[in-house]
């Protein structure tokens, strides 16, 4: 690569290139230099990310059942999409996914703020550090293993969840065998795993509050609530936006834990959208239909991620 000579020339004679030319803003590299650094990563992501997505898009316009290769894979136009849009099961799984989100998010936000405030409060250094580190444990736990542990904890015969509710006088039951119980069980495991995520984001927000302002406010009012509302809240809002968007994307993605714990059952009580699409694709093997569903899911995700970028990366260049 001849860019060595190029760099030397540009580097040693910066004044000789007054303005204009190839590298106006940042002399010292050729126009194609960034390309060579980026090309491998971009090429690989195109090949393994975009190409399969396009393939899925094409598949979504075909009748594509791999258990019946004799039928061939004819194009059927928008049939799959019409099937999806009129498929009450698909809408039911989306509705259930939304309900799941609405169930877990209030707990995660409330507990997240509470934990963040406790971690932010001065004093008890050791215990605070320990609690902060312990937040990492749920976040790092393999999602599938969360499901395995969930099955043990919520086991109807010897689960510790029953022991807990029986201590409060509620008779134990087969959690994963009952629709409501199974839904609560996966919600509890999700709240356990992702509350620390909210807490850490809010903690980051709290630590952005300038110390002087916080000190002044503390002299002004003894009320913790007023402090939260008028001083700390503005610093929590960006984190709140991030949590809401990322968590909704995560719930749309949620598969591992639910698949291991309930496989979407009993009946369709925990049939979240990703679990359902996986079943249509890999149990029924209707790849055309599943692809159409996946493309719709992708569109929702793209909307979410545009929103995320619009709202949270404004300040970056």
């Amino acid at each position: 690569m001849p860019s060595g000579a190029e760099a030397t020339r540009d580097g040693t004679l910066p004044a000789a290139v007054p303005s204009g030319g190839r590298a106006r803003s940042n002399p010292g590299y050729r126009r194609w230099t960034p390309f060579w650094f980026l090309a491998p990563a971009v090429f690989v992501l195109l090949a393994i990310g975009i190409y399969p997505t396009l393939f899925a898009l094409v598949t979504s316009f075909r009748q594509y059942n791999i258990t019946r290769p004799r039928d061939g894979f004819p194009f059927v136009g928008l049939d799959n999409y019409l099937n999806v849009l009129t498929d009450s099961t698909f809408w039911a799984t989306l509705g259930l996914t939304a309900r799941f989100f609405m169930t877990v998010i209030p707990f995660q936000l409330a507990l997240g703020v509470l934990i963040a405030l406790m971690l932010h409060r001065p004093g008890l250094g050791m215990l605070r550090a320990l609690a902060r580190v312990s937040l990492v444990v749920p976040l790092a736990t393999t999602y599938a293993v969360v499901g395995l542990v969930g099955r043990l904890i919520f086991n109807g015969d010897f689960g510790v969840a029953n022991q807990l509710i029986e201590a409060f006088g509620i008779p134990g039951f087969d959690w994963l065998g009952s629709p409501t119980g199974a839904f609560i069980a996966i919600a509890v495991m999700d709240i356990w795993q992702w509350t620390p995520f909210c807490a850490l984001i809010f903690l980051a927000g709290l630590s952005m509050v300038p110390v002087e302002i916080e000190e002044a406010a503390r002299l002004e009012t003894p009320s913790k609530l007023a402090m939260l509302r008028y001083v700390q809240l503005p610093y929590l809002l960006p984190g709140l936006t991030a949590v809401l968007i990322l968590r909704s994307a995560d719930v749309l993605k949620l598969f591992d834990m639910v698949f291991v714990m309930t496989r979407g059952g009993p009946g369709s009580a925990t049939d979240l959208v990703s679990v359902y699409i996986q079943r249509v694709g890999f149990r029924v093997f209707d790849m055309g239909l599943a692809s159409a569903q996946a493309i719709l899911l992708l569109i929702m995700t793209i909307v979410l991620s545009r929103l995320y970028i619009r709202l949270l990366y404004r300040e970056i260049e």
Binding site: V42, T53, F55, I277, S291, I295, Y313
Partner: peptide
């Protein structure tokens, strides 16, 4: 390009699992 990299964080694996399997 930057945003494209970031968007990849959110995509459900099931979207790619189907075509990659085929």
């Amino acid at each position: 390009l930057w945003f494209w990299f970031i968007s990849n964080r959110m995509i459900s694996p099931i979207v790619l699992a189907l075509p990659v399997y085929l």
